[in-house]
């Protein structure tokens, strides 16, 4: 009896949750609502949708702030609809947002995909409805793009090159043959894979030995536990290379607790690592200028919409930030 009631409540609350999380799924998301014009120009201004991942992630919060500041300075050129998600890896939520944006009659969608593959079909439907798709931050999978026939110019940083430079800055301080460990991001994300490859490139080029490699799922807490375990298991570990700063912060705490001198690299240059850079606990991180990323995507979309530029890929700047030696 008690269990039946509990199960009932779980079912009930799951239903409520799914309704709350997927607003606008009321059956008409594909149709164009009244009052909007299909080309997204209700009053002559193109309407541009910015679709990001979780705004709880400070990288995307910075991105959204950059886009809003840009829009405030150029408000008469376009209309901005900025969208964030509740959950970083919730692909279905991002697909829902894409469908809503098409329904709202936007001229372009500038998107940082939650998954390199799974959002492509929804974007293809958007493109078929006449919406321009510009891909920023996390690159869509080229094979899936070719298979679906979606053309989406990529505007974003070269994550592999950025990570390679951070790894190189650490490698310079080590002798050939030194032991290093890599803490990766989510392994299914394209930028996670690219950063891991870049860190590997740097280690291989300098003749370092990669003795451990695990995913910290982009999380500080997870990376802290993994770094502590790596330090226990590899007494000669000389450096830990992390695919983002959140994980580098977790690793820094583990290194400090171990009382050893181990070099550290991160990625993103979030404000919280400034003190670590200042006293050298973090050797290097990479600034991919998140605040500029969405703006560059929006500018590219505007240029393509007005016919000023052809839809083509563009690499944005990544800068190495090094700490005090």
């Amino acid at each position: 009896m008690r269990h039946a009631r509990l199960a009932g409540w779980i079912l009930f609350s799951a239903t409520i949750l799914s309704l709350a999380v997927v607003p606008g799924q009321g059956g008409c998301s594909r149709a164009t609502p009244p009052g909007t014009v299909a080309n997204g120009k209700p009053d002559g201004k193109p309407r541009i949708a910015l679709v990001m991942k979780s705004l709880a992630n400070e990288f995307f919060a910075t991105m959204a702030d950059g886009a809003k500041a840009h829009h405030a300075g150029a408000g008469d050129r376009y209309e901005l609809i900025a969208n964030g998600m509740r959950n970083e890896t919730d692909v279905s939520e991002q697909v829902t947002i894409i469908e809503q944006m098409v329904a709202r009659g936007v001229a372009a969608i500038v998107i940082a995909p939650a998954d390199s593959k799974a959002v492509v079909p929804a974007l293809k439907r958007a493109a078929e409805a006449g919406v321009l798709v510009v891909n920023i931050d996390n690159r869509l999978d080229p094979e899936v793009l070719a298979e679906t026939g979606l053309a989406a110019p990529f505007v974003g940083p070269d994550n592999r090159e950025g990570a390679r430079r951070a790894g190189e800055a650490v490698a310079k301080q080590l002798d050939s043959g030194a032991e290093v460990a890599i803490i990766e991001g989510i392994v299914t994300a394209f930028n996670g894979q690219q950063r891991a490859l870049g860190l590997e490139d740097a280690a291989t080029a300098a003749g370092l030995r990669i003795v451990a490699r695990q995913s910290g799922q982009w999380e500080m807490e997870k990376a802290n536990g993994i770094a502590a375990a790596m330090l226990s298991e590899h007494p000669a570990l000389a450096a830990i290379l992390c695919a983002n700063d959140s994980m580098a912060l977790g690793a820094a705490a583990a290194i400090e607790a171990s009382g050893r001198r181990v070099l550290l690299a991160g990625f993103d240059n979030v404000p919280a690592v400034a003190p670590l850079l200042a006293d050298g606990r973090l050797c290097a991180t990479v600034d991919q200028h998140g605040d500029r990323l969405a703006v560059e995507g929006i500018e590219a979309a505007l240029a393509i919409l007005t016919g000023a530029a052809a839809p083509q890929d563009r690499t944005t700047a990544v800068d190495l930030v090094t700490g005090q030696p």
Binding site: L55, N57, L249, A253, E256, A257, A272, A274, P275
Partner: peptide, 20 residues
């Protein structure tokens, strides 16, 4: 997220002794 503006706060030496 509202309290810390979605940003990680580095506390550092003020609290680390508790965990050393």
């Amino acid at each position: 997220y509202a309290v810390c503006d979605s940003r990680t706060l580095f506390i550092g030496a003020a609290i680390r002794p508790l965990a050393q």
